[in-house]
């Protein structure tokens, strides 16, 4: 019995020391890691939020993230010019990784497809400007996919033969917009 307590205490002390070492290294590296993550996506960020000159990570509201995996703010000097969200849609062939940018005036700055596994020449057209530009400059409200020519500003025309892919992107973007409206408090 005495042995058990002694062994447990030693194990406990060693684990505590390990935890302190980890938190120490983490405190040094976490900021650098965030900078690396931004650097990796900076090209796409700059394309979407062209008037921002630097980007910073915003902490996520984990419980209410609507599927948003990372949130960033675009800054011009110290002024916030827009927000960027990483979100993943589930398409026809697998995950579709998307970045969406929303300006401070709650219009869509642009979207960019980072990666996807949709069918070549059909679903893969989601990366093309013809599709992605449909979101640009519109109010950040819920979008709807239609198969015919659009009549309302919040309607997105599906890519012919790729309704599933088109819908997947739109659903993901709607989720990101919902997150934006909830957290930043855009339109009601």
């Amino acid at each position: 019995m005495k042995d058990i307590i002694k062994n447990a205490l030693i194990l406990c002390v060693i684990t505590l020391i390990a935890a302190f070492m980890l938190s120490f290294v983490n405190s040094i590296t976490s900021e650098v890691i965030i900078k690396q993550e931004i650097a990796k996506q900076e090209g796409a960020f700059k394309q979407i939020l062209s008037n921002a000159d630097s980007f910073d990570v915003v902490e996520l509201d984990e419980e209410n993230s609507f599927g948003v995996t990372n949130a960033y703010v675009g800054l011009k000097g110290t002024e916030e010019v827009g927000y960027l969200y990483n979100i993943t849609g589930s398409g026809y062939g697998g995950e579709i990784k998307i970045i969406i940018g929303i300006n401070v005036d709650s219009t869509i700055a642009g979207i960019s497809i980072l990666s996807h596994t949709e069918t070549a020449n059909v679903g893969s057209k989601i990366v093309e400007d013809d599709f992605t530009s449909q979101f640009k400059d519109k109010q950040a409200t819920e979008f709807e996919v239609v198969k015919t020519a659009t009549s309302e500003p919040n309607e997105i025309q599906a890519i012919s033969g790729a309704t599933v892919s088109s819908k997947a992107v739109t659903v993901a973007i709607n989720n990101a917009i919902e997150y934006y409206n909830e957290v930043v408090g855009g339109l009601d």
Partner: peptide, 30 residues
């Protein structure tokens, strides 16, 4: 390190060093 709990101690130490290396690589050699 007591003989009876040596394996958990080894694993804790090894896992700690691996995590440290992982964080360093992620930060400096992405």
């Amino acid at each position: 390190i007591p003989v009876k709990v040596r394996i958990p101690v080894f694993v804790v130490l090894i896992a700690t060093f691996v995590t440290i290396i992982e964080m360093l690589l992620k930060a400096y050699v992405p």
